[in-house]
Amino acid sequence: MKRASWVVFSLLFLLACGPKEKAEEVSYRLKWLYNVSAVGDLYADVYGYFAQNGLKVNVKPGGPERDALKELELGYAQFGVASADQVFRAVAKGAPIVVLAQLFRVNPLHWIYRPDKTTFERAEDLKGKTIGVTFGGNDETIMRAVLARHAIAETQVSLFSVRYDYNPFYEGRVEFWPLYLNAQAVIIGEKLDRAGEKYAFLNPDALGVRFVANSVVTTREMLEKHPGTVKRFLAALRQGWQDALDPHNEEKAVQVLLQMDRETPAAVVRRQLAATRTLMLPAPGAAFGKIDRDAWKQTAEIMAAQQLIPAQLNVETVLMTDLKN
């Protein structure tokens, strides 16, 4: 009896010491540097959601010179974040990209203005105004779409080339200035508050222009050859985002961000997180990351109208809406 229990114990010990199943390693290229727009991605990593799904994910920051879509094709990353315009440009040139989930429900790109100095109640009020746009950027595309939708000729407004210097807006030379509602808007708003100035935001979505922002993408090959990995990655990511945006976990989410981005003060991160919730959280009962097919179609139509992509691009083949959305 004693001998038998010794054998069982040895077997159990050997099993415990046996080769563990190694976590699958993948790279995930973000669209921008570590900031509040990646809080769910970082949360999933820090709180082990990827590991629980058998994945070791290298979450790499993006930036102006980094293009997640090119990295996917070159095999430097298996998953990435890209905006809809980037996806369409790539697909139009034959890139084998598919969209797995849509992170922002509302595009964070807004225009700040001073309501006491600039009257703005409806789109027609844009006539005669100076509006900042980044020529070549998606804010130019969005603003042109707003103007076209409301039959405002480009000669009726003055488009101003925007860079990182906000002085033209502070000085009042430019009335509408583009910024991200959950990032710069918090910092600029704080400055204007201190100066005792009023400010408000022009939301293109409210003017009928729905232009999809950050989405999670992968290659068609990855989806076809490793569907299990894709599903596990998405499950971990969704859980990460849901928990990071849950107000009960605010302190944990703030700490995750502060750990990765030491430059932004905690108070600012808290306000950025609150703004991010309004842009990302789905309607009650809906799953996080749901692909808004109509918004994607409108984005494609806007880009085709501005001749940025061919009109015959098939949007449906790019969107993986059947992946438990």
Partner: peptide
């Protein structure tokens, strides 16, 4: 060689 799309490296025609 790597069969990259025109998005990564454009074709001679483009």
């Amino acid at each position: 060689t790597l069969r990259l799309s025109d998005y990564v490296i454009p074709s001679p025609d483009e």
